[in-house]
Amino acid sequence: MPRDLLQIHNARKVAMKVLLSRKDELLNLHYVAMAMPSLVWKLETVPDLLLVLSEPDLCNEINKLWGFKSTDQAAKQLFYDTTFSIGDYFVSPLLTKINCFDEEPTVPFSILIHRNQTTESHITHFLTMKLNKKPSLKRLVDDNIFITHDREDAITNSISFVFPQWTQFSDYVHLKRNLKTHCRKEQIGKDLRKRIFEYIDILQLSETLEQFDDTYDELSKICPEDLLKYIDNNLKEVLINITVFTLRSHGYLCSDVIPYSNRCEGFNFMLKQLNEWKKSSVDAVVLSFHRLLAHFLIDIRRSRAGLGKYHLKSIAARYALDTDDIEDEPKISMNDIVKELQADLY
């Protein structure tokens, strides 16, 4: 295992030279998997492409920092979404929020690269993580884990199958986006649409079920019949599940907490920046993800020692590292990482 960014960079340079001599990206993937077994946890190329990538040392860091008990929100929060336009495949990162830092950074647990958006693909991803015997993943099977995603059936069903004990939250941004699309389909006027969304926001902020029901009755009075039927069948129960009073019952005590996957959106945007929104071969992207995961690991460890861009909360002092435990790793921003990877890939 390379010990610092320089060694990782040199290893990638050597690997890239080898890859450039071959044209078959799927064959290259097998060479990468054999050379980096700690990175590639699952690889299938027949009948369809599927990879699960993760960094054991980064998982170990997350496992340790998940022990931090926040006073106003659940300790173990995951976010999951799928991005497009990186290549002729999908990328689904499993992310978590590290609450022991003031900045609460988003860190990838694992990354799924898959050709098809199916329940089976996501099941394979979650099963790979669940069945892995590494001690660094032992907290992943705990009961008190909360995951936010966009309610896509393939994701919902796969989580229910592999991790039925996880609590699933629907992403509020996607929920409103779907409602907006339906309003346009029903040709709802701009003014009425604005009032409807104001009621939706009030519903999410409900602090009691009675308050929710009263607001819903008011919403019902202004909604056209077909739109109200859509909300009844598709959104009402989902909204109840992410109201303030429901979130508080799960340990989210912040008055302004809203479950949304903007962290996924931000991470996916960063992935697309790697190739300037151009499509890349999957073998080159895997090597890029290797560098990214290494960056996250170094950034977290440096921050625990007071050398990074994140700052431990005062009540999380027990997670601090001694500076002597940190190797002389250069400070480097994510933008620098992106620029270096672009130079390597193109």
Results as ranks from 00 to 15, higher is better:
Lys134His: 11
Gly189Glu: 08
Asn10Lys: 09
Ile258Gln: 08
Leu345Lys: 07
Val52Asp: 00
Glu329Trp: 08
Ile86Asp: 03
Asn116Leu: 14
Leu307Phe: 03
Gly189Asn: 13
Lys180His: 13
Ile258Pro: 02
Thr208Ala: 06
Leu20Lys: 13
Gly189Pro: 08
Pro224Tyr: 02
Ile300Asn: 02
Ile240Ala: 04
Leu297Pro: 04
Ser170Met: 10
Val32Asn: 03
Phe109Gly: 09
Asp344Lys: 05
Tyr230Gln: 03
Phe161Lys: 09
Lys176Phe: 06
Ala294Tyr: 14
Ile315Gly: 09
His295Thr: 11
Gln165Ala: 07
His125Phe: 09
Asp171Trp: 01
Glu44Gly: 05
Ser136Gly: 06
Thr96Lys: 02
His182Val: 15
Glu207His: 10
Leu175Ser: 01
Asn99Ser: 10
Arg151Val: 07
Ser54Gln: 05
Pro47Cys: 01
Leu127Phe: 06
Lys130Asp: 04
Asn10Val: 09
Gln165Trp: 07
Pro93Ala: 03
Phe109Gln: 14
Gln7Asn: 10
Pro37Glu: 05
Pro135Gln: 05
Val91Ala: 04
Leu247Glu: 02
Ile145Trp: 00
Thr83Asn: 02
Thr215Ser: 14
Lys64Ser: 13
Gly308Thr: 04
Pro93Asn: 05
Lys176Ala: 07
Glu340His: 07
Ile8His: 03
Asp201Glu: 15
Tyr89Trp: 03
Asp217Leu: 12
Ile200Trp: 10
Cys254Ser: 12
Ala305Phe: 11
Asn116Gly: 09
Asp88Ser: 11
Ser249Glu: 09
Lys194His: 11
Lys69Gln: 05
Phe79Asp: 00
Lys97Leu: 10
Asp328Ile: 09
Ile113Gly: 03
Asn268Ile: 12
Phe126Asn: 00
Asp4His: 10
His149Pro: 06
Lys279Thr: 13
Ile147Tyr: 01
Met36His: 14
Asp322Lys: 13
Ile111Ser: 04
Asn132Val: 08
Met16Asp: 12
Pro224Trp: 02
Ser255Ile: 11
Pro37Gly: 07
Leu49Glu: 00
Pro135His: 05
Glu237Thr: 15
Leu271His: 08
Ile159Cys: 01
Met334Gln: 12
Lys64Glu: 14
Ser110Gly: 12
Ala74Phe: 03
Ser261Val: 00
Val244Met: 10
Cys264Ala: 10
Val46Cys: 11
Asn144Cys: 13
Asp325Ile: 04
Leu227Asp: 00
Gly308Trp: 02
Cys264Ser: 13
Asp232Asn: 15
Leu112Asn: 06
Thr71Asp: 11
Phe289Ile: 11
Ile111Val: 15
Leu341His: 02
Ile196Gly: 05
Thr106His: 11
Lys130Asn: 07
Ser38His: 08
Ile196Trp: 05
Glu327Ala: 09
Leu127His: 09
Ile242Ala: 00
